[in-house]
Design a protein around this nucleic acid. Structure first.
Lengths: 210, 210
DNA sequence: ATCTGAACTATAACACCGTTATTGAACTGA
DNA sequence: TCAGTTCAATAACGGTGTTATAGTTCAGAT
């Protein structure tokens, strides 16, 4: 009753599968994550995977959600007591750190890197929690009059797009490695912050670190 | 001498393969493009593909280059006599139009959507020609003093990242379909243009169409 | 005109993939 | 101890990219 599997064997096989799938994803990339290798790594046969998950996309779906939960957690770790605009920029830095640290996850989350996998509508909801952090931070800037008035959702989407775009180009190798991706993103969010702030009533904000 | 294949059979088989691969890519997406289906579509056996191309990635490499050539062409189609900043924004619009119109190509160009395929260093050069259009347009803004002084390459990278990011999010379904991707991108490049322009010596430019 | 040699093609096979039908094993409850 | 259910393993099916083997066709030289 407490378990899906009343048997003693593999008390939390489901968790083991996901952990090993995550490790395999991080090591070998999306291509290297095959059902056969996964079962072999766990030490069982492939059929076990199908008793705990419907099919391969179902496993990827969980990793997809897990990736957004990590991203969400990394964004929540940004201090809450910063000056609003500075906090948005700090969120941008945290976003990049999280994406680069979990590059294969990021690939799974934002590109169709596995042939049969398309995240389910329910899993896509996980992305909204992470986005909400960014949106709320932008909304705080708008409410404080630190930014040109506008829909926080739209502004946050612009910001998200820029973050994702630069990181995506960086991870794909389109940006020359001479300058660090961090520095480039730094300049980009500076431009956007300036663009957002330009029409605001009070441009100068008191007590900003930078 | 004029042909790689002195035989009469298949005067330009290579071209036929690429054309059908392109069509198959556009129809069925990256997943649907298999060597068997491709050869079946042409009406031959799979081995023909390997006599003209080293392997599957070699074919994808050509499509990859072809995709960037399309993008390059679409950017070059933007009028040259616009006011510099307006021209950059127009390039942004052209970029999105091109990406959306050739979505599967765009996917091939910017995401690892085919397991074994990683564009060769030589093919990646094709991306630089397209980027150069954007870079030169930005440089013109800088030279004219219409934009805060800075490295045109860096500024163009920021712009490229934003374009790519928003388009990527749009194509992946992360942006709500309520607002058109065009409108969202419009607002984004407006913010960036403002941010770039804010520290320029002379903000007002004479004789601008828009 | 025949032969040689090279280039192209087809068949079949290999190893891998995701998935599953069939079979076998193991444990719970009576 | 026995019945019944639920797990797991083997082997298979159809699919993928790729290639070894073998067959075919043509250009040029004798």
């Amino acid at each position: 009753m407490t378990q899906t599997n009343p048997r003693s064997a593999s008390p939390d096989m489901r968790r083991r599968i996901l952990d090993q799938a995550s490790a395999l994803l991080a090591e070998s990339g999306p291509d290297g994550l095959s059902m056969r290798k996964l079962s072999q790594r766990i030490g069982t046969s492939t059929i076990v995977l199908y008793t705990h998950f419907r099919d391969k996309p179902a496993i990827l779906d969980e990793l997809f959600v897990e990736g957004f939960e990590r991203l969400h957690g990394d964004l929540l770790a940004v201090p809450d007591n910063l000056e609003p605009v500075a906090r948005v920029m700090e969120l941008g830095r945290a976003y990049r750190r999280s994406a680069v640290a979990n590059a294969t996850y990021y690939q799974l989350m934002f590109s169709r890197c596995v042939p049969g996998f398309d995240p389910s509508a329910q899993s896509r909801q996980a992305s909204k929690a992470a986005f909400a952090v960014l949106r709320d931070a932008v909304a705080r800037c708008v409410d404080a009059g630190l930014v040109a008035p506008g829909d926080p959702v739209e502004i946050a989407h612009t910001l998200w797009g820029t973050l994702h775009g630069l990181i995506s180009l960086e991870l794909f190798g389109y940006l020359p490695p001479s300058v660090s991706g961090q520095a480039r993103l730094e300049q980009a969010i500076e431009v956007i912050a300036t663009g957002m702030r330009v029409a605001a009533p009070n441009t100068e904000t008191p007590g900003i670190p930078t």
